[in-house]
Amino acid sequence: MTAAGFSAAAPDAALAALFVPLESSELRLPADGRVLFLRARAGVRLREMAQPGWLCEQGFMPFADELARNGLRVGEPAADEVFPLVLVLPPRQRDEARALFARALVHTAPGGTVLAAMPNAEGAKSGEADLARLAGAVQHQSKHKCRVFWSTPDAAGIDRALLAEWLSLDAPRAIVDGYVSRPGLFAWNRIDRASALLAAHLPDDLHGRVADLGAGCGYLASQVIARCPNVSTIDLYEAEARALEPARINLARAQRECGRELAVAVHWHDVTRGLSRRYDAIVSNPPFHQGRADLPELGRAFIVTAAEALQPNGRLFIVANRHLPYEAILAARFRDVRTLVTQEGFKVIEAVGVKP
């Protein structure tokens, strides 16, 4: 487990299934050793198989850090870089997955192969059908309650119009109330109810330097700008790299609409590793799960980081599911803790004054 509580190193079933065609000799590793792995996850089998020519792309910082600690090369391919084998662990969200399949084809060398794996319960058949629509003939195997499927597309068989359409699915897009987001982010196509509840209970006297921890596409930070005229600086911290561009767009709009400029920065960062700056106030809708598993230690880790980053009389405002046991850690770290509202299964808590 990392400090964040994410089980970043634990291989899941899809990762295990991904290598089955290579283990059974249905497919072979490229002679030149060059492989691109999109949405890569660390695991024992990956460490055993990976070679220096492998490039692992992972936008979620705790998972990217774990790949790097395993000695794997982590980064993004150049726009025109192609590989004889592209591995993919597609997400469950279909627009995000389709965009990822399209990117995989863009980075597949002529005669190369795209190899993907998905859990059966998370849209594996749909994923296979989507790759077939885009690339042509697809083969598959089943293992570990997952479907692993691959295509070695002929350039003439690729649907170029569909490729362009699916590549565009990952672009930030308008959702509601003027905000933009992108598929696959948390609550990506709506304003999250918990964040909206917290925003509605933010006092207008917040001032100075403010941070938003686990900022997503920047909704809470935008609300701080709109509601708190004495805030001069706001920093967003978010572990998912795909959220950063929408966040910058939303913050720029918030500043235009309020008619003032602030010192604004958006950081790709794992909050649980601590912050290097001090703040007068922090707002957060902290994550509390990985996949379908509740991990309340994530929220507690956010609270610890917030306490360590606040000025002695700083203020923390968080929202959480009502059942999450945050009160003990808040009481241990802050002098005054009070629940501002409990509504629709959520609670908004204010904590003031960091204990020495």
Score class of each variant (00 low, 15 high):
94 R>P: 04
274 G>T: 03
27 L>K: 11
307 A>M: 00
353 G>V: 09
190 R>I: 02
50 A>E: 10
322 R>T: 11
33 G>F: 09
86 V>H: 12
151 S>A: 15
292 R>I: 01
42 A>E: 15
308 E>N: 14
347 K>L: 13
325 P>E: 04
30 P>E: 07
254 A>S: 04
160 R>P: 08
85 L>H: 09
9 A>V: 06
178 G>L: 06
244 L>D: 08
21 P>W: 07
36 L>A: 09
136 G>I: 14
172 P>L: 12
239 A>F: 11
84 P>N: 10
176 V>I: 10
122 E>S: 14
325 P>I: 02
321 N>Q: 12
271 V>Q: 01
24 S>P: 02
273 R>P: 09
87 L>A: 03
262 L>V: 08
81 E>T: 09
5 G>N: 12
56 C>W: 04
84 P>C: 11
285 N>F: 02
301 A>Q: 02
89 L>C: 06
263 A>S: 08
313 N>I: 00
11 P>K: 06
267 H>L: 05
147 R>K: 15
123 G>H: 03
104 A>V: 00
316 L>I: 04
51 Q>G: 13
91 P>E: 07
37 F>Q: 04
238 E>N: 00
116 A>P: 08
243 A>P: 06
238 E>A: 00
15 L>K: 05
341 V>Y: 06
189 N>G: 08
192 D>Y: 00
351 A>S: 13
191 I>Y: 05
100 L>Q: 06
20 V>N: 01
26 E>Q: 13
298 L>Y: 00
204 D>Q: 15
292 R>C: 00
77 P>Q: 10
139 Q>M: 12
74 V>T: 08
125 K>D: 06
40 A>K: 03
35 V>L: 04
276 S>I: 00
189 N>Y: 07
275 L>F: 02
153 P>V: 02
214 G>L: 09
226 A>K: 14
275 L>E: 04
264 V>M: 07
290 Q>N: 05
203 P>A: 14
288 F>Q: 01
176 V>E: 13
284 S>C: 14
3 A>F: 13
38 L>H: 07
16 A>W: 07
336 D>Q: 14
72 L>T: 09
174 A>F: 07
122 E>C: 04
2 T>S: 14
153 P>A: 10
250 N>P: 01
274 G>N: 01
350 E>H: 07
58 Q>A: 10
233 T>E: 15
352 V>A: 10
312 P>L: 02
11 P>N: 03
346 F>Y: 15
290 Q>T: 09
144 H>V: 01
278 R>I: 05
110 P>H: 09
128 E>R: 15
109 A>N: 00
54 W>V: 02
162 L>E: 12
189 N>H: 11
172 P>I: 10
40 A>T: 03
306 A>G: 06
66 E>K: 15
12 D>N: 13
219 Y>R: 00
318 I>V: 05
28 R>V: 05
146 C>F: 11
151 S>E: 08
194 A>W: 03
193 R>S: 03
301 A>L: 01
294 D>M: 08
275 L>G: 01
